[in-house]
Write a protein that binds this DNA or RNA. Structure first.
Length: 284
DNA sequence: TCCCAGGCTGCTT
DNA sequence: AAGCAGCATGGG
């Protein structure tokens, strides 16, 4: 039972990973990043060759954190599957080697990305913080740290009024989040078995939720359901794809999806994250 | 003031 | 099938 643990890592850029727009609950305070995973307050710090984690409540088994951070993934094996002659992609990788994908809890991930449409990442972080503070449960925090709350479960949000959600800055997304929470609360839909389906089947299930289209579905498949080939196309990615792979050409969505699958390969989602991150940092 | 943001829905052609 | 306005809210 420990409050602190050290995890040896190779090629893991913790700050870039936590700030790369896949999870929205992490805050940086000097060298330390604090966040909430499930019902645990966690602080993470990158050190040479390892990540140091601290919790508020003693931990017997750290597997939940290893899983969240995907510490057992061999990144070099992933990078080896990328097209080696793709200059744009290789440039993006070299700009931030060590950028990783997390494995998030499906409901929080789905809810977060329902809130994400036509929002900047900082605003999504604000919305998630408001939802947690207002509808989540207090989480134990070490002495002297800001209070934090767990992300509210779908059972809780299913019973919240649309007006209360709009108070959390959800805008037109409020009815989407509420209806999605209700589908899960009634058992009409289920997120826990998505990882057992094929990627296409799981995607079709996600598309049944109101406010969830192809982009958000792919984010959930990639960031929460363990489908590394899922490739989310947002405005930034579309800009990169058009510039590097389809210059001066109109490309239909279905053809684009086929190109992505065949060109980027079995870990296309990782490629997507490198391209997205590179576009963002290059623009500023 | 205008434009854009990790989009989706529903209504037009 | 494909195009497009509308949808809230905040930042540059």
């Amino acid at each position: 039972m420990n409050l602190i643990a050290e995890f040896p890592v190779e090629c893991y850029d913790l700050p870039a990973t936590l700030a790369s727009g896949q999870a929205f609950r992490w805050r940086e305070s000097q060298p330390v990043w604090t966040g909430v995973i499930s019902r645990r307050w966690v602080s993470l710090r990158q050190e040479p060759g390892c990540i140091v984690a601290q919790t508020a409540v003693a931990v017997a088994d750290w597997q939940w954190l290893r899983h969240y951070l995907q510490l057992d993934l061999d990144l070099h094996q992933v990078l080896a599957t990328f097209p080696q002659d793709d200059v744009a992609l290789q440039t993006a990788v070299r700009a931030c080697p060590g950028l990783r994908l997390l494995r998030q809890e499906p409901w929080e991930c789905l809810a977060s990305f329902i809130c994400s449409s036509t929002k900047q990442i900082v605003q999504i972080q604000q919305i998630i913080a408001l939802l947690s503070r207002r509808f989540g449960e207090p989480v134990p925090v070490p002495e002297g740290h800001e209070p934090v709350w767990s992300f509210p479960g779908y059972a809780r949000l299913a019973g919240v009024s649309e007006a209360d959600l709009r108070d959390c800055k959800l805008g037109f997304r409020a009815p989407y989040l509420r209806a999605t929470a209700q589908m899960l609360a009634t058992g009409e839909a289920d997120l826990t078995r998505l990882h057992t389906l094929s990627q296409e089947e799981a995607r079709a299930e996600l598309l049944k939720f109101p406010g969830v289209g192809g982009k958000i579905a792919d984010c959930v498949l990639l960031f929460a359901c363990g489908f590394p080939q899922a490739f989310a196309v947002d405005v930034w990615i579309m800009k990169a794809l058009r510039r590097h792979y389809f210059p001066r050409r109109v490309v239909k969505p279905e053809k684009l999806r086929r190109f992505i699958r065949t060109h980027f390969g079995p870990h296309a989602g990782y490629a997507q994250q490198y391209l997205f991150h590179y576009m963002r940092v290059k623009q500023g």
